[in-house]
Simulated scan of single mutants.
Amino acid sequence: MRENKVLPGFSERLAAQAEARKALLEKFKPKPTVVAEVLETREARKARELEEVRAKRAAEKEAARLAKEQAEAEARAAIENDEELMNQLRREERKARKAQAKVEARQKREMKSQMRRTG
């Protein structure tokens, strides 16, 4: 009889079954474990992450502080360079001084007046 090339024979089926069984058993064999060179504990990792967050926040704070100082310095420079604004500030300062002197003079007069009335 002629062998049918399309349909596998009994021995071929047995060989395929044996290969499948070997592959299945291979999955259950223990695999070699990978051991980290430097084992980091959970506490150490949390401490490291916390330190990183603190350092990042400190850097952000410092950057914000420097930016604020720079903005203030630029504002002061702009004010100093603006002559009209400087004149206005001088006028306001003079008005404030005169108003303060006026209040002090009034208080002095009232004290004199009160001293004359009482005694």
Rank of each mutant, 00 (worst) to 15 (best):
M1N: 11
M1V: 11
M1Y: 15
E3C: 07
N4I: 07
V6K: 05
G9S: 12
G9P: 00
F10P: 02
F10M: 05
S11Y: 13
S11W: 08
L14P: 01
A15D: 08
K22N: 14
K27F: 04
K29S: 06
K29F: 08
K29Y: 10
K31E: 11
K31D: 07
K31R: 15
P32G: 07
T33Y: 08
T33W: 09
T33Q: 13
V34I: 15
V35I: 13
A36D: 15
E37W: 10
V38F: 11
V38K: 08
E40G: 02
T41C: 06
R42C: 01
E43L: 12
E43W: 08
E43A: 14
E43I: 05
A44C: 03
A44H: 08
A44Q: 13
R45H: 05
R45G: 02
A47D: 09
A47I: 13
R48E: 09
L50R: 12
E51D: 13
E51Y: 09
E52C: 05
R54H: 06
R54Y: 04
R54K: 13
R54A: 06
R54L: 12
K56E: 09
A58T: 03
E60P: 00
E60N: 02
K61P: 01
E62Y: 04
A63Y: 02
A63V: 03
A64K: 04
A64V: 01
L66W: 03
A67K: 08
E69A: 14
E69G: 02
Q70A: 13
A71C: 02
E72G: 00
E74N: 15
E74Y: 05
E74K: 10
E74S: 08
R76K: 08
I79W: 02
I79S: 02
E80Q: 13
N81V: 03
E83R: 07
E83H: 07
E84N: 10
N87I: 09
N87E: 14
N87M: 09
R90T: 07
R90N: 09
R90L: 08
R91S: 10
E92S: 07
E93S: 11
E93A: 14
A96V: 06
A96M: 14
A96H: 08
R97L: 15
K98F: 12
K98T: 12
A101T: 02
K102C: 06
E104G: 01
E104C: 02
K108G: 00
E110G: 00
E110Y: 03
K112P: 00
K112C: 01
S113M: 04
Q114S: 11
Q114P: 00
M115V: 02
R116L: 11
R116W: 06
R117Q: 03
G119L: 04
